[in-house]
Every structure is written in structure tokens, then in C-alpha cells.
Design a protein around this nucleic acid. Sequence first.
DNA 1: TTGTAGTTACGAAACTCTTCGTACATTTGT
DNA 2: ACAAATGTACGAAGAGTTTCGTAACTACAA
Lengths: 129, 129
Amino acid sequence: MQAKKKPTDSELEILQLFWENGPSTVRSIHDQLCIRKVTGYTTTLKLMQIMFEKGLLTRDESAKTHIYTAAISRKAGQQQAVNRLIDTMFKGSPAKLVMHALGNHQPSTEEIDQIKAYLKELQDPTAKH
Amino acid sequence: MQAKKKPTDSELEILQLFWENGPSTVRSIHDQLCIRKVTGYTTTLKLMQIMFEKGLLTRDESAKTHIYTAAISRKAGQQQAVNRLIDTMFKGSPAKLVMHALGNHQPSTEEIDQIKAYLKELQDPTAKH
DNA sequence: TTGTAGTTACGAAACTCTTCGTACATTTGT
DNA sequence: ACAAATGTACGAAGAGTTTCGTAACTACAA
């Protein structure tokens, strides 16, 4: 693996949009960004160009209007963020993180069951599900 | 509440030390920081002064050598970080965050039991523990 | 052809973060 | 008393981030 640098907050906002929409043009990303945040088109363009240079995005330049794609999946991004958080704030105790996560954002009954099942599997990997 | 700004990574490193040690002098923080990272004394000083201005630290100036204290508890800091992560990366699904957290950092059996008990309480708040 | 709109590329300004040098004050040791 | 050690304050340099203006290219319509 190569790039390990964490995306900035602005870059993360853009990545979110890619994760929701898949490959996109600057125009498309910019329009969605503008709903929540006033900004110039060239600002978005520049950001995406820099993200491309950093390896956060790839792009298809075959057409005049380039098509950008996230170089990292949502899942991988989430995993990376969680690992980071555990390292910096919950030294070695993912359980504490879990408590915090569940404490403030009450999950639904279904979600809790889901987690329970997951835990059961973790403790007894031989059990089929 | 006033301060909403997230601490930078450097500031977080320093906060960690306060959370482990309680109120401390610049010298004390600096010495511990230096174990993992070569840096000048005035660098640490400046950082802590800025954190004071931002409201991340308070300080007692009655003696010549100031005594700094974290303005936010470890717990509050963790909660803030988790909320932030859920907002930016796990929109509305703390359960997904939990899976990610448990998936990569296998918790001990005791921790799993702890989480299970916690979940049981969440689902059945009337049950005594 | 000419002009309008949409696109990329680029440079620079404004801002923040990190680092450190320097100045100056206070305490301590000889 | 004097020098050395220790402390605070402050300014500024360097790096990274974010913003945008401007130039240049292309497509298309009048």
C-alpha cells in the first residue's frame, strides 16, 4: 500500500459525495457541494485536482470533461478512520469506543440484534450463522 | 457551550498527556513528548499557549512556572470524537461503526461480555444489573 | 465568423499549523 | 554579586490548506 495520509476535512466531504454517487464530474460534485456550502467552481476543481495528485481520486481524461473516481472505498475509509480513532483516543480498547458510540446514538433494536449476533460469532467462530 | 473547534493532531497528543497525568507544567509535558518525538522546548510552550488561548487548556499563573490543566475530560473528548466520526463517516448508523471497531481490533472475551451486558441494558432498561 | 458557455490548468493570496530563535524576567548556586 | 539555569512571551519562517481570479482551449449556436 502506498498513500497513508489522512484526507483533510474538505477532502472528506468530497469523498462522501463520491461514495454516494460513484464516478462523477467536477460539475456534479460542485453542484452537490454548493447545497450546503457556498463556494466557487474553481475551488472544487482545484480541490479535486489536488486529491488526484495525492492519489485520493483517479480520473479518466479521455473526454474533455474528466470523470473522477474515488480511489478508496467507503468501507476502507471507514475502517481507516476507526483505526485512527482507536489509536489516538482509545488506546487498545475498542470496547470503550463501542460504548461511546452506542451511548449517544441509540441504535434500533434490529441494530442491537445485529451487533449481538456479530459478537456471538466473534466469541464462537465455529458456530454457523 | 462555546468552543466547538476540534483539536489538531499535535494538540491531541498533548491532551492525552494531560489525561494521563493531570495538571502539568510545560516542562513536564515537554519531557514526555520528547520521548517519542524530537522537538524544542519553546515549540511545546507555544503549542500550549495557543491551546490556552483556544480554551483547550486552563492555567494557574500564580506561580512563575504556570500550571496547565485540560479544559475537557478524556471522556468528553472521546465522546466528541466519536460523535464527529459518526456524523462524518457513518451517517446515522453507529452499528456500522461498532462492527468496524470490533472487526479489526479483536476484543477480549471479557470486553465482549461487557458489551453484551451493555446491549442488554439498552434493550431492556427496566432490568436491574 | 463570432461570441457564449463550459471546461482545465495554473498562480497567488489568505489562512492555519508547526517550528524555532530571540528577548527578557526570575530563581538558584557559587 | 554574578553567572547559569529555567521560565514566559513574542515574532516570524516554512509548510499545508483553502480560496479564487485569470488564461487558454473546445464545443456549439447564431
